[in-house]
Amino acid sequence: MEEKKTHIDVARVCELAHFDICAEEMTEFQAQLDNILAYVNKLDELNLDGIEPTMYGQPVVNSFREDVVTPSLPREDVLRNAPDSANDEIKVPKIVE
């Protein structure tokens, strides 16, 4: 098991999560998140050797259905929601030089 910490590197995690927070929030979040982290470290009290993880709400195994083609959403309905579009496509900033 990796070493646990009592301190989240909030600036680094924000980078991973693709957003910024302001300086004031940084101070506020740091204290709150470290507090929450200290609380969840409570799980260290438990002996979890040999316990299987529960990942789903109910045990579901291999739920199959017929591979039938059904209509997709109409292009105009989808593009109506795009912040920017042209020629029936969604526009984004240049990604290839």
Partner: peptide, 15 residues
């Protein structure tokens, strides 16, 4: 941190 937090939580969820 995956094993230290997430995986432990999933096991505790079983309990």
């Amino acid at each position: 941190y995956y094993d230290a937090y997430y995986n432990r939580a999933l096991k505790a969820r079983t309990l």
